[in-house]
Design a protein around this nucleic acid. Structure first.
Lengths: 200, 200
DNA sequence: GCCCAATGTAGACGTCGCCAACAATGCTGT
DNA sequence: ACAGCATTGTTGGCGACGTCTACATTGGGC
């Protein structure tokens, strides 16, 4: 029985997606602290308990958000990777894409690296991370085969490069430096990683 | 008038310190999400509104916690720094101390790098950070004077080294790698930073 | 066309951060 | 010594939140 005239249908249609979309927007505009399931439900026009049908608890929604973040990051990196380029500009392009993502989505990045996810979600995270660092790892291994990079344990190399990029992204997202300064420093960062701090 | 026999004194003595200590313990044992002002008040044996006399809101307590974290980190780094050492082992020692701190206090480190602090607290943070990266910066500038490091913009160099260390710390604190693996990888990390990935 | 699983609703419970009004305490100036 | 006052703690309450349970509505598969 419909009390109100012209009321929306009892079922939302795709509440899960609507909640995720709203959460993403709130995350971008007001930060993770401002995320509330009840508020998201209000925005979606459903009752305060409806989100519980799609996410077992708030953390589950955050995990889903982080997971979709990994997807977007992976797509951004793959789009930015040009295998035809020589090693250094290729890495620079990747680094720039990563930093751009970090600068555009600082709170999302924080969520992605948070260590509060259910074991199940954490597994999905791990594979998502593997996909990304695996990409970097393959580039490095290939460069090793071409003799462009020293023959050390490729995991160590990947870890170091990934750490430098991620640290830069964290610093940048922290807002100490402005966007342009960070992005224009990428060339030097990659150069330093490749050539080292010691004179040659 | 004392209703209860043998009740505690009306005033706590040093509630502020007790709250911070309790918060630090909870942070270590159960994470920042489990931090509640009311719970801290209970542990300290005071009423639920008492913390409000010492911290204007919850964020103020978190900021104080972060600030004390910077203090401890700075002390740990200074204790670990041996200026008599050659550059590479000296940096390795510092890196190891930083990673140890990150592994021991992952949630605290996250708090320290959070970008949610009041302008006033953010200022104190900034100077605390300056103190630490300034230390690193001086080491690098000195090495430059000795010709041990290329003559590039020292800020760029410091940023890169700091980013690499911080990224490694974040990865480590994230719990993907176990403590021993991380700490034993420090030598390689510093070596790579100094000598670069390209063959010499 | 019926039945059941999926989805949404209504209400309640306990916890939380924060605020205001009030009570106890200890410091300071005289 | 002691009055007055700022500091510190208490009590009670407000609104918001996450989560649970019981119930309502819907739509797809037998």
């Amino acid at each position: 029985m419909n009390h109100m005239s012209a009321s929306r249908p009892y079922h939302h249609g795709d509440l899960r997606a609507a909640l995720l979309a709203g959460a993403e927007r709130t995350l971008l505009e007001k930060g993770v602290a401002a995320l509330s399931l009840r508020e998201l439900a209000r925005e979606a026009g459903v009752s305060h308990a409806a989100p519980g049908r799609h996410f077992k608890d708030k953390q589950a929604l955050l995990s889903a958000l982080a997971l979709s973040g990994y997807d977007r990051l992976a797509r951004a990196l793959e789009a930015a990777d040009d295998p035809a380029l020589p090693l250094q500009p290729r890495l620079t392009g990747l680094a720039r894409a990563y930093l751009r993502f970090a600068l555009d989505n600082p709170e999302l990045l924080e969520l992605m690296y948070a260590r509060k996810h259910d074991p199940e979600a954490a597994d999905l995270m791990a594979t998502a991370v593997d996909r990304t660092v695996g990409h970097l790892g393959r580039i490095i291994a290939e460069a090793q085969r071409h003799g462009e990079i020293i023959e050390a344990d490729p995991h160590h190399l990947t870890f170091t490069v990934g750490a430098a990029l991620h640290g830069a992204a964290t610093f940048s997202a922290g807002g100490v430096l402005d966007r342009e300064t960070v992005l224009s420093g990428v060339d030097d960062l990659v150069h330093l990683l490749l050539h080292g701090l010691k004179p040659r």
